[in-house]
C-alpha cells in the first residue's frame, strides 16, 4: 500500500496532465499587446488613406470608391495580420521553451484547427463582400468572425479568451448597425481590446 502523500500526488498529477493535454498554455500575453499595437499603427495609416482630413470619429460621407484605396487597405490589414501571427508564434515558442514544453503539440494543432474554421470561412466571406462592393460591412464581419474564432479556440486555451471573443462579437454587431464608422470599431476591436487583454494575460500568467 502506498503512502497517503503518494495518493495526493496521484490526484495532483491527474489535474496537471488533464490541464496540460487539453489546454494550450504557452500562449503569450505580450504578443497580444504587440498585436494590438500593430493594429493601431495599421489603423492610423488606414485613417490617412481613406479618412483624412475628416476627423476619425466623424461619419465618412463618401464611400470607398477608388480601387487604389481599397487595395491599400487590404495590404495594411494583411501586413498587420502577418506581423501579429509571426510575433504570436515567436513569443509563444519562447514561453513554451521556458516551461520545458513544445509549441507544436496535439493540443496546439487542435487549437489552430478549431480557430481556422471560422477564420477561413469569415475571410472568404469578407473577400466576397469586397469583391461585390459591399465595403460597409467588411470591418464588422472581421470582428464578428474573429470573435467566433476566439470563443471556439477558448476550449483549448485560457478561458479568458472566451470573454475577449464575446467583446469582439458585440463590437462587431454595434459596428454593423453604424455603417461608416467601421475603421474606429476595427481599431477598438483589434487594437485597444488586444492591448487590454494581452496586458491582463501577461500579468496573470507570464509574470
Amino acid at each position: 500500500m502506498k503512502e497517503i502523500q503518494e495518493y495526493e500526488k496521484d490526484i495532483a498529477s491527474i489535474r496537471t496532465i488533464m490541464e496540460r493535454s487539453a489546454k494550450f498554455i504557452s500562449l503569450s500575453g505580450l504578443s497580444g499587446v504587440l498585436a494590438g499595437i500593430y493594429a493601431l499603427t495599421g489603423a492610423t495609416i488606414a485613417y490617412f488613406t481613406i479618412h483624412y482630413p475628416i476627423s476619425p470619429i466623424n461619419y465618412r460621407t463618401y464611400s470607398l470608391q477608388t480601387p487604389e484605396a481599397l487595395s491599400k487597405l487590404v495590404l495594411i490589414a494583411t501586413l498587420v495580420l502577418i506581423a501579429s501571427i509571426t510575433t504570436g508564434l515567436w513569443l509563444s515558442s519562447k514561453k513554451a521553451k521556458k516551461h520545458g514544453l513544445k509549441l507544436w503539440t496535439a493540443t496546439s494543432k487542435r487549437l489552430l484547427f478549431n480557430m481556422a474554421i471560422p477564420l477561413v470561412a469569415g475571410g472568404i466571406f469578407i473577400l466576397i463582400m469586397l469583391y461585390t462592393g459591399h465595403f460597409g460591412l467588411a470591418a464588422p464581419a472581421c470582428l464578428i468572425f474573429y470573435g467566433l474564432a476566439l470563443i471556439q479556440g477558448s476550449i483549448n486555451t485560457f478561458d479568458e479568451i472566451r470573454y475577449l471573443g464575446f467583446c469582439e462579437i458585440i463590437l462587431g454587431l454595434i459596428s454593423a448597425s453604424l455603417p461608416g464608422f467601421g475603421l474606429i470599431f476595427w481599431t477598438i476591436g483589434f487594437g485597444v481590446l488586444h492591448i487590454i487583454y494581452g496586458a491582463i494575460m501577461y500579468n496573470k500568467y507570464d509574470k
Binding site: K9, D10, I14, I17, M18, S21
Partner: peptide, 13 residues
C-alpha cells in the same frame, strides 16, 4: 501513476 496519467489524457481528449 503513468497508467493513471495515460487515462487522464484520454479521458479529456
Amino acid at each position: 501513476r503513468i497508467r493513471l496519467q495515460i487515462m487522464s489524457v484520454l479521458v479529456t481528449n
